[in-house]
Design a protein around this nucleic acid. Structure first.
Lengths: 211, 211, 211, 211
DNA sequence: GATGAATGAGGCTTCATTCAT
DNA sequence: CATGAATGAAGCCTCATTCAT
């Protein structure tokens, strides 16, 4: 009973890995069902025992790619760190992982980015999950007295934007050489030290414009 | 020689515009060579007198899309504004343009983003150009006393990252609803008020790690 | 030998019922061997122990569909009604059954019709059987003085035609909304009151043509 | 200008004829795009210059098949015959044509029937057209005093049913051997002599049932 | 030069049927 | 015996690119 399921699962796993290998070798447009099946030593028809459609395979590839990042988020959020540190780790650990991936194969990384932008619905749920966890951290930070005068959603949105480049695969794909944990740390500091509701220079200019 | 060349250029220009119209109407997957040629009143075969291949056309489309953004950058950089204001305008005006484009047709905007991510070598040169101009502004800002203790490249890199979401089309395509000139203003303020070399909380933690 | 044979029969019966359920749920194009086998809790391979091929299954489905109609015909023919009434019941009862089937699921009904038209050699024997019984009824009617001057075959053929729409599944599939027992009754009346050998208007014209 | 259109038309015409030939040779399931294209000496891809899809080809085949029948209906309806004769010709001439077709190739005829039942929407419009013309004839007949007491729609429905077998291709496909212009003439006579609103035997029985 | 027409190559998907275990 | 697994063969369709005229 468990066996057949796990055989299917094993097959899915293998096909996902082959799809990934193929993508990494030759880009996402090379990811055809025939080629993947051939590499798995099966007929194109057999592929459909494991995945209902090409799209289902892509979903599985995405899930495979995101899985370790999700694990990190969960780990950090449920840890006991203070908020500032927690937020830093929340981004830094995922960044470190993706940076390592990028270093191993920048082109493959870019291909995942492309895959994501072509199948954005698949990516959306992970973004939403990230937002959910980040909001938790922001809540804790506020309880510690940070982000005075900002709504939680406002803070979420601003932080997400400032730090987007350490989260957004599409952006990372071509900015990675310029990204570093140190810089991320500085941005998190700017977030904690520079983000509150009082209007200062630029905000004032922007306010005048709207008038 | 001169005449034919300018005819070729006119043809290229027309084809690019038709390709854009087609993309905006029906998405990038509808951008087939035959359809574009038909709209230009020419045969598919004739298309190849103007562009060597589909890829060559896409390059030209990208150039066409970036041109007004480049114009804005040049205008702002050569203006007489103080550095803080200049940097704000440097990002805000381009953002305003792209926001307007996005509002007119978010799907078309997403299509350009997709086109960019599929052909991002084409995008690289524009990014480099933007970096070049931003470095100039940072230089001016430093002359005015900002970013104490940071190298110009370090500042460039950090600012680019914090503000990336207002520059990166791929990110904008799905974040646009959350972006605003006001928030950009706050980020620029955080840049000018929060970005200098002194180590504080997060940076200290990050420093320990590296040790 | 005896036991296995009856096991085979039970299996065939079950598979036929599952095929029917499947057709009624999802149309004839959904009737794949694998799906039927799966519903029977057997492997596709095992299916072939019961039916030699897909076509053999379809034959069995047709037989199953016709069986109750045959039962009605036999019941009516062997009853003691007078001929006019008997002929009416001969058609009316089967019509009532099929109308009920149609009302329960017109799409399924149409699917049977399609199945029949795609495999109409299978249907032929039932038509022949119906003709046989109808001829008996006509004989009785003639003995009661009806259809003066007509040969039995001639009457059979004419009646079959006039009433075809209450017998032919293909026609019924899309005419059912316009069919009713009342109208059938009127047709049977026209048969008994209007069908005899004397030439009148149209027949005379037709006779001239042939000359 | 006219040329290209007529080239396309010529191609469509040729493909329709080849499709028909193929159907007549090997049944409708043999009608694959590849086979038709091969017979036309073109690649499967080229087929799509002439027809948008398989379905478009089938529509054209149906139109081709129905065209002469429509012509007959129009001719008869606009003629000056008296109503009884007109109705007879309305059915008889079409029947004669289809009978000839059936005699030339009964299997091909059956295949058209199958095609029709698989693509019934295509057939519906021709049925509706026939109803429209028949209603005109019934109107004329009523003006001449026939069908006393019946509504025009009631008469239309009843006549259509009695004569269905001379109109319905699906029914004809396997009844043709028993059909004849003479029998049709008798049915038309039964229509004109036996169809009016007064209740008689069968109708009375049917009435009792409903009570 | 310009083009209408053609197509090779490929993409995704389905399913009746078989065969090693 | 039963079957899980596999697949050959086929189907429909698209499109970048070429070539004879």
């Amino acid at each position: 009973m468990a066996r057949p399921q796990s055989d299917i699962d094993a097959g899915r796993q293998q096909l996902v890995e082959l799809a990934i290998a193929l993508i990494e070798e030759r880009g996402s447009s090379a990811m055809t069902m025939s080629e993947i099946a051939a590499r798995a030593g099966m007929s194109p028809a057999s592929f459909y025992r494991y995945f209902e459609s090409k799209e289902a395979l892509i979903e599985a590839v995405a899930a495979h790619w995101f899985q370790p990042k999700v694990a990190i988020m969960e780990e950090v959020v449920s840890s006991d760190l203070p908020a500032r540190r927690k937020m830093f780790e929340f981004f830094a650990r995922r960044f470190a992982l993706m940076q390592a991936e990028w270093e191993r194969d920048p082109l493959a990384f870019a291909t995942y980015a492309e895959l994501g932008s072509e199948n954005f619905e698949l990516v959306r749920s992970y973004i939403d999950l990230g937002d959910h966890y980040l909001a938790e951290i922001i809540g804790e930070a506020m309880a510690e007295g940070h982000f005075a005068g900002l709504e939680i959603d406002e803070a979420l949105s601003l932080i997400n934007q400032m730090v987007n480049v350490y989260v957004n695969i599409g952006a990372m794909a071509y900015l990675m050489p310029k990204l570093s944990t140190d810089k991320l740390a500085r941005i998190i500091d700017a977030v904690f030290d520079g983000l509150f509701a009082t209007d200062r220079g630029a905000k004032a200019i922007s306010g005048l414009r709207a008038a």
